[in-house]
Nucleic acid binder design. Structure first.
Length: 823
RNA sequence: GGGCGAGUGGCGGAAUUGGUAUACGCGUUCGACUUAAAAUCGAAUGUCCAAAAGACGUGCGGGUUCAAGUCCCGCCUCGCCCACCA
């Protein structure tokens, strides 16, 4: 009998699929489309790990299932290949990033193929190739044309190890997203002239659309939190004292309903008016010192400080415009310049932070609610939502919800402020002072300013260089390549210089969902009708990048939608966020611990890709973190092997009597129903369990019936092979051919179940007495309620437990149980 | 500190959303095949009890219900995300 040997059949079918273009999608097909993939990744020299295996197997199963169902299923593949590791390696060894990246990609191609993923290699993309980044640069120009790409001088996060600036989103708990382990230093700030994308223009649009998305719920919440919209008011406070008379300070507040409780004002140390006014203050020296210390500290250090600090600007007062109260002005680093106006109206009676500050510096406290018993921090935080106002003139006694809009109205009517919306989201900083990225297509001319490179001159290709060290004061190695830097201005023709910064890698991955649809197009980034047909992506899977990447991709897609380049505004219809596989001790895999599992090793050990794929999905639901268990892996190998054995035995069997065995059909149709439903819901673990159960059932049937019922066995085996095909594509293909087929099982072959085979003719019902199961009865489906109850009541053990008493109540739950109640 | 989620056998995890808790698998034990082992096939496996009967059993304590892993109230523990955003 032919034995199951993954080492033999897996390469064989991989070759066959390649040669036959089995997974090459026809993007102009008349079939209904299905478009899905896992977040592409950076090809590192280390090769793929279990995380990659999970990331691509999750969509692969769904894509294969859809392909079998008759969809034109497009699983694209590509590499996000610009990035720092290749460049850092180049600095160390002098090897060009192009070379090391190409080598890594070659090795990835091999590894991806070994996993049996149904990717369309004819449309592969690679973001570091000029054919790709030409269009990344084109995207930049489109945004620039619409005023959404601009330059400004600003303080930015700087990672000393990456030697580049970082976007806010790339700073995680105060550290660089690439250097966030405990021994890495915190990021610092540098003031530089940088390029930004104006994503804030889209904040509202993106935020509003978030709720309707079919995405993993917490990812949606993360998006919303990141945008951080708050509605409030900006209010102007006039200044008095020192030389400030006539000046004013604007504050942003969401709690304008507490405006009668303002007892002081706080400015961020960086606030420009601090320097203006403090110089006249008696305590100028003190303020100056405080400001200098605060500015030197990073935001992170400032946020870490438990105890609030601050200094008054002595002699400077602000006038609360609502009641003309004169209040002191303080400087404190708990107020951040980056949000709102960098100035806060402090209401210690109603705000915990202000309260803490007021207590420490003995500032007055006015409560604006009737509940004045709040005495500490936590009381103020848990302030009830429906309180009544106090100490608020005409609003006293009014309910919070009623007073709030009225106070805003008063602020607006008296022209002391206006309603305003604030976002935590900042514009996206895209400049990177590095070599291995897409050059920003701009030429700086002393006469014409920053001139975009004309589209016809794209791509601005990366020159080959030998020295990859960043050049001097925070600029990219490109700055040293003078014959590349010096060009003529496209507008006036005079000598000018190229921009030497490259783009953040996230720019490349913000639009790849479009390029996948038209990867070889040399005339345009993509054909619009292609995008109209194929967008949005039906299924997008990832296990990382829950905020930044998705936000950026949504921004780009909305922008292109508004430009008429795609008819859908959202890139990803369903976004699935899977959880990590943990090491067997429940901790995370880590390079330093060296406890990683190499998928290729698992495959080559003889278990094969099919067992690995199936097992990864069988351990737990994909969105639950669960530990890897080496001893569990053989379970899925065994399962495949059991199907294999059935097919081989069936083929060799000479039972030709055709004795009917209808339970075969029941067993199989049940599995078809369950597996179909579970795959749709990405509950792959129970789908695998259902297949195992079905195969166990077939083994039982085989014991008595052998293979006598030829026709039903043929159907059963074909069905189970079709069901397992998304999980174990190689074995399924081999068995499909063993069952007499010459086409591939992977296209247009998904079994359908027939509900009529699922009907039971007998039912097992539990019989409970006072809530405890005391007997089990088997009844024919046609019996009436009375007949069933009668049978239940006559069971020996039921009679025993009734102990002569009459039931007070009998409840019959159809198909489930009979519940008898006695007193 | 805020938000969200989770706690079920020795282990990973099921449970049609209020209806026989522990599907499927791992592990363990026993049996078949074998000179033997591996592989394979079969049986058993929540706890207490020799077994049946029974009792107990889904983090802890209450409650609703004929019936609670599932619903309600109060705790405990763990995980993730956000975190001085005015």
């Amino acid at each position: 009998m032919k034995r199951y040997n993954p080492k033999e059949i897996e390469p064989k079918w991989q070759k066959y699929w390649d040669e036959n273009g089995t997974y090459v999608a026809n993007l102009d097909s008349d079939k209904p489309k299905y478009y899905g993939f896992g977040m592409f990744n950076y090809p590192s020299g280390a090769g793929i790990h279990l995380g990659h295996a999970k990331n691509f197997t999750i969509p692969d199963i769904l894509m294969r299932y859809k392909r079998q169902q008759g969809f034109e299923s497009y699983s694209p593949v590509g590499f996000d290949s610009f990035g720092l590791p290749a460049e850092n390696y180049a600095i160390k060894t002098g090897q060009s990033p192009r070379k090391t990246t190409d080598d890594a990609i070659d090795s990835y191609r091999q590894q991806y193929r070994s996993m049996g993923w149904s990717m369309d290699w004819s449309k592969e993309i690679d973001t570091s190739k000029p054919e790709y980044y030409k269009w990344t640069q084109w995207c930049f120009l489109q945004l620039h044309k619409d005023g959404l790409a601009y330059q400004k001088e600003s303080m930015q996060w700087w990672c000393d190890q990456c030697k580049t600036v970082l976007a806010d989103e790339q700073v995680i708990a105060g550290k660089c997203w690439r250097h966030d382990s405990s021994d890495d230093p915190f990021v610092s700030k540098k003031s530089l002239h940088q390029w930004f994308f104006k994503i804030t223009d889209y904040a509202d649009e993106i935020l509003e659309a978030t709720d309707q998305l079919d995405w993993t719920p917490w990812v949606k919440t993360a998006q919303k939190n990141w945008i951080g919209r708050s509605e409030g008011a900006s209010v102007k406070f006039k200044l008095e004292g020192l030389d400030a008379d006539g000046g004013e300070i604007e504050v942003f507040t969401t709690a304008y309903d507490t405006i009668y409780g303002v007892t002081f004002m706080v400015l961020a140390p960086e606030h420009p008016l601090v320097a203006t006014y403090a110089q006249h203050a008696d305590n100028f020296q003190e303020v100056e010192e405080y400001v200098q210390t605060a500015i030197r500290k990073s935001d992170v250090d400032r946020e870490k400080e438990k105890v609030k600090t601050g200094v008054p600007i002595e002699g400077l007062y602000a006038i609360n415009p609502i009641n003309n109260q004169k209040i002191p002005v303080w400087v404190a680093d708990y107020v951040l310049m980056g949000y709102g106006t960098g100035a806060v109206m402090a209401v210690p009676g109603e705000d915990a932070r202000d309260y803490e500050f007021a207590k420490k510096y003995n500032l007055p406290i006015i409560y604006t609610t009737e509940q004045q018993e709040f005495v500490d921090y936590s009381d103020i935080k848990s302030k009830p939502k429906n309180y009544k106002l106090a100490n608020s003139n005409e609003f006293n006694g009014m309910n919070f919800s009623e007073a709030k809009p009225k106070i805003l109205q008063k602020i607006v009517d008296e022209q002391i402020g206006e309603s305003q919306v604030q976002y935590k989201l900042r514009d996206w900083l895209i400049s990177r002072q590095r070599y291995w990225g897409a050059p920003i297509p701009v030429i700086h001319c002393s006469k014409c300013g920053a001139v975009p490179v004309p589209e016809k001159d794209l791509p601005v290709e990366l020159p080959e260089i030998n020295d990859y060290h960043p050049s001097g004061q925070a600029s990219s190695p490109l700055a040293k390549v003078t014959d590349w830097v010096n060009v003529d201005c496209p507008e006036c023709g005079k000598q000018a210089k190229r921009e030497t910064d490259t783009m953040d890698g996230y720019v490349c991955s913000s639009w790849y969902q479009f390029r996948y649809l038209d990867p070889h197009n040399t005339d345009q980034a993509w054909k619009v009708d292609r995008a109209d047909k194929w967008m949005p992506v039906d299924f997008y899977n990832g296990g990382d990048h829950a905020t930044a990447h998705l936000l950026y991709a949504r921004f780009f897609t909305r922008f292109f939608h508004n430009k008429g380049l795609v008819d859908t505004p959202e890139p990803f219809k369903q976004m699935y966020f899977h959880a990590k596989i943990l090491a067997s001790d429940g901790t995370f895999f880590s390079k330093s611990k060296g406890n990683g599992i190499d998928p290729l090793e698992v495959i080559n050990s003889g278990y094969g890709a099919d067992a690995l794929r199936t097992y990864i999905m069988f351990i737990a639901p994909p969105d639950i973190e669960s530990p890897w268990n080496n001893d569990g892996l053989p379970s899925c190998y065994r399962f495949i092997n059991r199907v294999w054995t059935l097919v081989q035995e069936f083929n060799q069997s000479d039972d030709k009597e055709n004795i009917k065995a209808d339970e075969i059909l029941k067993t199989v149709h049940k599995a078809i129903k369950k597996v179909t439903k579970d795959i749709e819901q990405i509950k792959y673990n129970t789908a695998v369990a259902a297949m195992m159960e079905c195969v166990n059932g077939l083994y039982k049937i085989k014991e008595t019936n052998l293979y006598a019922d030829r026709q039903n066995w043929q159907f059963a085996l074909e069905s189970i092979v079709q069901l397992m095909a998304p999980f174990a594509p190689h074995a399924a293909e081999e068995l499909w051919h063993d069952l007499g087929h010459e086409d591939t099982v992977h296209i247009d072959h998904w079994p359908e179940y027939d509900e009529s085979y699922l009907a039971e003719d007998k039912l097992k019902l539990a019989v409970q007495v006072n809530g405890k199961v005391r007997a089990e009865i088997e009844v024919a489906t046609g019996l009436t309620k009375e007949e069933i109850e009668k049978k239940a009541l006559s069971q020996d053990n039921v009679v025993a437990h009734l102990d002569g008493r009459l039931p007070t109540k009998v409840i019959y739950v159809p198909n489930k149980l009979v519940s008898i109640v006695v007193k």
